[in-house]
Amino acid sequence: MTLVILAFVIWVAMWALNTRLANGPRANSRPIQLLVPAIFGLTILVVWELLVHGLNVPLVILPAPSHVVATFFNEIPTLWLDFQQTFIKGALSGYVIGCGAAFATAILVDRYDFLKRGLLPVGNFVAALPIVGTAPILVMWFGFDWQSKAAVVVVMVFFPMLVNTVAGLQETTSMQRDLMRTYGAGYWPSLTKLRLPAAMPFIFNGLKISTTLALIGAIVAEFFGSPTMGMGFRISTSVGQLALDMVWAEIVVAALAGSAFYGVVAMTEKTVTFWHPSQRK
């Protein structure tokens, strides 16, 4: 019981501290902006830990964070294997193929107005559909190994990437296009010197959305069949064995991989589109 009360006290104290920091004089400084969410996150973990012990929550419902951390470090070889299978082989290869194919298609679609008017509505429609549902079909076609996972990822990232790239390629002003015409510039110079650079913010938006979709696709596809490794496989089998600490450890891996993947793309975006108003310092 004391642990529960302690958890409550810590929560109240954290909130008082964050309120003071957030309304304090230096609230807009960089350290405070990082400190406040860090305190919040840390408090959640501490309160979680205390409540699990204080209320004697069984492992099969919720493991304590310390328990998850311990499992994480004990199981690093397994987690690493799963990470390679799901992220490197499944998600990453599918991401590269899917985004690459969508990019090439977008260039083609953009060149022919007929295709643009035909494919864009279809693409917008498909982008809103529950595409994970194709996972059982693709698993049946491409087998249990990573190829089928990559195929699911390709299907998932293709349309969001296509729609974003096509929208980006249209993002030039009539004045910019007229300027190219006054130089008597043909299709390729206009594409490489004007329309592709101008499309970059949109292309990166598509790439960023696709990072999350890729990981989701690769994990969920494993629920429909996989070799005896992979993050989705481990999650579903560990859930079956009620080994929730292992499930949480995989979730930690997924969260780290997901945010690192997104972070890398966002960093690249920053260097490529440094000129865009949203990125200027």
Binding site: A22, P37, V132, L215, I216, S236, I251, G258
Partner: peptide
């Protein structure tokens, strides 16, 4: 403001995480 600064970064970061993975659990 306190809620904004505490929660918002996590809400945004959570969008990069494959939340769907915890569904079975």
């Amino acid at each position: 403001r306190a809620m904004d600064m505490s929660v918002m970064p996590w809400a945004i970061a959570s969008q990069t995480i494959p939340i769907l993975a915890i569904a079975p659990m």
